[in-house]
């Protein structure tokens, strides 16, 4: 019964995706849109898989991945540290909270021109933008999760003679892990998006640059390929993240 329902739901879910591809194929074949404007999905995916074997394309993908991970990792470390510190120290929270409240709703992408001016057009400015964008959801989730931790967990550690700072990192942080990971997942997807956009705005390499280069040369097929690549990358990173998450949250009660 349950298995039948699961399969039927999966089938229903496949309908709009297949439908969209079919619609795309139909429009492309009907001659409504010339191939220069809309190539068929077959051509696009063939090109995508062909590019997966091309070292030049993989180099661009690697550059994007490097910026993504460097930015995301620094954002995680900074977001978690600041979030936990704000829970641990009232004085620190009094400084950090208003600054976060001012900076969180600022569209970070607007900082990008300034970052290119100060950090140059290379990796550093893109990584900095990823950090600026991914850090806030992680910081906020860490702060909210850590302030909701049952105080008796922390008391149990303090009573065992553990110092307040160690308690923050050995008890409060792991106890807030479900919330931290929710923030980190949002941060990861944002990193994925932001690095691509930054590469589109100014860059000489990376997947975003490939899209802009294709656009300038009106190579429509090659414009779709980086887009497919970045969303596949997003899906893969999300799946990888879920694996890590399941491992880290082994002892916690299941959600929902």
């Amino acid at each position: 019964m349950n298995a039948v329902r699961q399969w039927s739901e999966r089938l229903i879910g496949a309908v709009p995706i297949i439908g969209l591809l079919a619609l795309w194929q139909a429009i492309a074949m009907s001659g409504l849109a010339p191939p220069a404007l809309l190539p068929t999905p077959g051509v696009v995916f063939a090109r995508f898989f062909q590019q997966l074997g091309s070292p030049a394309f993989l180099d661009h993908a690697a550059v994007t991945l490097y910026r993504l991970f460097a930015g995301f990792m620094i954002a995680v470390v900074m977001g978690v540290t600041l979030g936990i510190a704000a829970v641990g120290s009232r004085a620190f929270a009094a400084i950090v909270t208003p600054v976060v409240r001012v900076l969180a709703p600022v569209p970070k992408i607007a900082l990008y021109p300034a970052l290119t001016l100060t950090l140059g057009y290379d990796d550093a400015s893109k990584i900095a933008l990823v950090i600026a964008d991914a850090m806030f959801p992680i910081l906020l989730a860490t702060y909210q999760g850590a302030s909701a931790v049952e105080p008796k967990l922390a008391w149990s550690a303090r009573a065992a003679g553990v110092s307040p700072v160690r308690t923050l990192f050995t008890v409060v942080l792991p106890a807030a892990m479900p919330s931290v990971l929710t923030g980190a997942r949002i941060g990861l997807i944002i990193s994925c998006i932001v690095v691509f956009l930054a590469e589109m705005i100014t860059s000489t390499d990376g997947l975003g640059h490939l899209l802009m280069r294709a656009a300038r040369n009106f190579q429509t097929v090659d414009m779709f390929v980086p887009l497919i690549a970045i969303s596949m990358l997003g899906l893969m990173l999300n799946a990888l993240f879920n694996l890590v998450r399941r491992r880290l949250l082994r002892g916690f009660p299941e959600e929902k």
Binding site: A14, A33, F196, I230, L237
Partner: peptide, 26 residues
């Protein structure tokens, strides 16, 4: 929910502003 969820999952990581060049083409 079963109909829209997978579609949303696939579209989610696509940077929407990155569609700009393609949409400009059209």
């Amino acid at each position: 929910a079963a109909f829209f969820n997978p579609l949303m999952m696939v579209i989610y990581p696509v940077p929407k502003a990155a569609l700009m060049p393609i949409i400009m083409l059209w």
